[in-house]
Design a protein around this nucleic acid. Sequence first.
DNA 1: CGATTCCATGGAATCGATTCCACGACCACA
DNA 2: TGTGGTCGTGGAATCGATTCCATGGAATCG
Lengths: 342, 342
Amino acid sequence: MADITIKDVAARAGVSAATASRVLSGNPATSPQARENVAAAVIELDYRPNAQARALRSTHSDSIGLLVPDVRNPFFADLAHTVEQEALSAGYVTLLGNANEQKEQQDRYLDTLISRRVDGIIVAPLGDGSGSIHSLIERQIPTVFVDRAVDGIDVPSVTTDSEVGIRQTVEHLASLGHTRIGYISGPQATSTGRDRFAAFTSTVAAAGLSQDPDLVYFGDFQAASGSAGLHALLGLNDPPTALLAADSLMAVGAIAILHKLGLRIGTDLALVAFDDIEWFALLNPALSVISHSVEDMGRIAVDLLLEVVAGKTPQSVVLPSELVIRASSSLPILPASSRRKN
Amino acid sequence: MADITIKDVAARAGVSAATASRVLSGNPATSPQARENVAAAVIELDYRPNAQARALRSTHSDSIGLLVPDVRNPFFADLAHTVEQEALSAGYVTLLGNANEQKEQQDRYLDTLISRRVDGIIVAPLGDGSGSIHSLIERQIPTVFVDRAVDGIDVPSVTTDSEVGIRQTVEHLASLGHTRIGYISGPQATSTGRDRFAAFTSTVAAAGLSQDPDLVYFGDFQAASGSAGLHALLGLNDPPTALLAADSLMAVGAIAILHKLGLRIGTDLALVAFDDIEWFALLNPALSVISHSVEDMGRIAVDLLLEVVAGKTPQSVVLPSELVIRASSSLPILPASSRRKN
DNA sequence: CGATTCCATGGAATCGATTCCACGACCACA
DNA sequence: TGTGGTCGTGGAATCGATTCCATGGAATCG
C-alpha cells in the first residue's frame, strides 16, 4: 500500500504541507495559485486524506456509532437505514454494530466505538446503566437512546408511547368478545419490554379481562421465543383466544408454529403484533399491528444527536403508536365448542 | 472529554509510556512488577486506548468494511449479521455501509472506508469497475466481492451459482404445464441481475417454452419495481401463468399487488422467488423459493478476506442454489377459461 | 573475579494531518 | 522614507500510541 500523504501532494504542488492542508480545509488564507496547484496535485495523485491522522489531531472523526440489538429484526434494519441516510446527509458516516440482544456484545461494541472516538453514539440499549453505558456517560460522549431508554441514565431519547397502541388493542379485542388475551412479552431487561408489559397488564385490568398470570410468556424479542411462547400458551388448560406479541420477530415465531399446527390466524386465534412490518400486510389473513413510525424515530434520533454534539441538551421525544386493524383480529370470538383444541 | 492517555497510565504505574505500551500489547519483555502496576492503573483510570493513534502508527485498524446494496433487504440484513459475527470472533469490527443500490452512494462509502484505512473491504458491488472500485484495486486494499462480482476485476469472491436453481425452477414450472413464464429481472448493472437473466433465457429456450421478450420486466431489486413489473406482465394480451422474481424484495412488491387485485398465489399465478426469506414459508400459500445459504456466504467472505489480508490469494468460491417447492407453485396449470382476467 | 550475555526500561523518533507562530513581502498612509 | 497593517507561507509543535535503539543492572560463564 504505497500511501500518498499530504507531503506528496505538497511536494507536487510546490508548496509546504501546511499550505496544502490549508487548501484542503478551505482556509481562506491561501493564494489562488496555491489552491490551483494543490487541487491539481490531489487529482493527479488520487490523494485521500488519512482519516485516522486527521481525527487524531482534530478531536472529531465525522462518524457516529449506531448500536442496534438485532439487525435481522426488520424494525431495526429500517432504523439503521434511516439513521444511516440521515447521518450521511449531515456529513457523518455511520458505524453499525449489532448487540445480538446480549449485554456482553453491547459492551464490547460500545468499547470499540469509544476507543474509535466516534463523535456520538445512538444506541437502543439493553440492561441497566452498568458497564460500558456507564463509561459513555462518565466520559460525556454525546449519546442518544433510540427506541429504548435506561432508567436512571439521563440521556436524550426517542421512544414510542406503547401504552396508547396497546390500550387500543386490548379494547379492540375485548370488543370482539375476547376475555383471555395471551401476551408474549419482551425481556424485562429492556425498557420497551417493561413498558409494554406494564401497559398490557394495566389495560387488561381496566377492561375487566382475565389477569391470569399464565397468559403472559416472557420472551427475548427473537423469533424462537415467540415459538416457545405460543406452545406454552396453547398448552394451557384454558388457552387464550387472542394473542399480542410484543415485537415482530416473536410474532413471526408464533405464526410459524400456528402454521405447523394447522391453526388459522384470525379464526382459531386472533393475533396482533407490535411493529408494523411491510409484509405483515401481505399475510393471509393480513396481520393487525401496533404501528409506530421508524422513519420519524431514525430521523429524530440523528437530529437529537447532532444537537448534543453541538453542546445543547435537547428534550427527549416520545412518538405515538396506534392500532392498525386487519383481518387477523377482525372476527368476533367463536364459541368455545367450535374451536379446535391444541 | 478529559481523555486518559497512555501517559496517564504510565505515570500512575510509575513506568514510562514505552513500558506501559509493551504491557498493553503483551510484549514479553516486561517485568511482572510492571505488568501488575500497569494493569492496576488501567482499571483505576478506566483507560481505553485511542484507536486512531494506534492505527496511525501500526498501519492496521482491526476493522473491516462491509458495503451492502440495501440493509432492508432481508438477505443482506442476514448477510450483515453473519459477517459481523464472524468478523467479531476474529477480532475485527465491521463498519457497515449501505449503497442503496446507487453507484454514487457506493462510491461515497468506499471513499470513506478507504480514508479510514480499514484493513479490508467486503462489498456486494454494483456497476462496472470504474470509480472507487478501481481505486480499491489500485491501492491494493484487501477486497472480497460477495454475492456479486464485477467483470474484469480480479478479486476473490463468494457468489451463488444461480443457474442450477433457475433451471430447476423453469423445468418444475414446465412440468406443471406452464409455457409462458414471466420474469422480473434484477438490474443488468449487477452480476446477479445479468447471470440470473441469462440463466432464465437459456433454460426457457432449452425447455421449449415461450421466449416472448414481453415476458421479461427489468426491475432494480427493490420492492416498488416488483409491483411495477407485475402490473406490466398482467397487462399483456397474453399474460404469463407463472412468475419468477429475481430477488425477495421484488417478490414482495409483486405479492402486494396480487393481494390488492384479489388474485391468489399458486392458483391464479404460480410464483417463485429467488432468495429464501424465513417468512416466505409463512405466507398462505407458502412461497416456493430458490434457496442459497447466506450463512455460508457470509462466513466464507470473511474467511477469504482474512486470507487476502494475510497476503494470500485465495480462490473464489461458488455456492450452490436449489429450488424449494412449496404451495405457491405446486398446482398444475388451470385451463385458460377458468382463470380470472386482469 | 572479569567478561559477556540477557533483559527490563526509558528516551526519542515516527505515523499523517492540523495549527500556532513567526517571517517576509507588499501596500498604504502620514 | 518610515511605520503599521494585511496576507500568504513555511517551520515546528502537537495529537496518542508504537517501536527502534541505547543504557544500566543483574545473571551466567570461563
